[in-house]
Design a protein around this nucleic acid. Sequence first.
DNA 1: CAGGTTACGTCAACACCGTTGACACAAGAC
DNA 2: GTCTTGTGTCAACGGTGTTGACGTAACCTG
Lengths: 231, 231
Amino acid sequence: MAENERVPGERKRRRPTSSGVVLSADLIVDTARELIDTQGAQAFTVRKLGAALGADPSAVYRYFRNTEELLLALADRLIGESMAGFAPSGDWAADLRDFALRAYRSALRHPQIAVFSTVRVTGRPHEQRAVETGIGLLLQAGYDDAAAVRHYHALVDTALGHAALDAGVLRLAPAQRAADERAWQAEYGSLPAEEYPVLHRVRDHLPVMAGSAVESALDLLIAALRSEAPG
Amino acid sequence: MAENERVPGERKRRRPTSSGVVLSADLIVDTARELIDTQGAQAFTVRKLGAALGADPSAVYRYFRNTEELLLALADRLIGESMAGFAPSGDWAADLRDFALRAYRSALRHPQIAVFSTVRVTGRPHEQRAVETGIGLLLQAGYDDAAAVRHYHALVDTALGHAALDAGVLRLAPAQRAADERAWQAEYGSLPAEEYPVLHRVRDHLPVMAGSAVESALDLLIAALRSEAPG
DNA sequence: CAGGTTACGTCAACACCGTTGACACAAGAC
DNA sequence: GTCTTGTGTCAACGGTGTTGACGTAACCTG
């Protein structure tokens, strides 16, 4: 824990890189974010980040101890952004759904972050604000402290978990994705009724399995929360 | 699609490796599985797999086109194993919970597979059996074809999504994990009541956020399915 | 305005990774 | 016994994260 932090408060000596850019922790996070947004998550590597910055890749390590630290910083920023336009309507159930969907959508674009912000506690301002808001909605519903925390945890992890899975689909080449979609119809649609009576019966509905289940899942969760709410 | 498959049915020429092992697709999948089980998911690399097999890593490519194909084969095997002891009790709701938890637990040990078997359709026997069983339980509950498929999708993806997240926690070094657990108490437990009234109020319950939310989430899903069931 | 410290950008290197193409050889076919 | 060819091996390519040495420019002191 000796040299725990790489960023000792303020930078004094701001030497530009060979390409003229002046680095900073913020700029690095910005660029990383842009890289992921435009090129996809798998395009994020330290070396490509360096190239995008116009700097040697190893310069990043002057600001973050490793890529994990960098992603952690990016995570909190994204949490903040995803909750930026959130305005509670007063209907706690609808608000919770919106809250969870925002988390999902943000995580979907940044899958590395999704797993991350569940796994690690950023402990940073945006995360704290979001947790405050989310648990608050459940208290508003009439749940006691323990239940509010437990249900918040279930809801957020479900949203982020679906994001982690769905991000995997987006990562597939479009051709592969189309092939898999067809597989639900072709391979599953033609199974013998004797051996697979259920699959045979529901065969027309199987292609929906290729899409995301996040809304179905959230709807069920919210329905349960609504019917169990003490208030 | 010309050389779609690497494994053309049967192998005739079974030449042992330099270490004396006779390779086969099954042996490779077995070894991969063992590697992940004993060393953790991040220990699975083609090169380590080669070493564990006592063969040159590139020999794997005689049996699988790439690592993705190999993982796909492993995925179906794991689906089979996880459902091996499954015995429906007749209580469809309880059975669904068991079904989902089996998927969760299996995926938790093999996170790469978790994302995978949601993303890609293996189209292999074990997968088909599992889907047949799961959707069957929802039909038994009285849901119509479309709803049964939709709810099955939501349930399974939720279980696997939580597995993907929770696997990230397991991957952390124990020290890091303990530190994060304490963070929920330390950083979050000491927030000022004025600025964070909710977090201040529920501070004693926050450490549960460090654990898995899968059971809470599944309980809510099952509760919703139970109360919405037409039957 | 001169000199000294040193933070920080750069470079080269290390140890990994998945994957491929050339090659040699032994197993099976005839 | 000879031929074909499947299959294990080897070396190499281009990629990855990360580290340590190094020089220089930016700031501080005077």
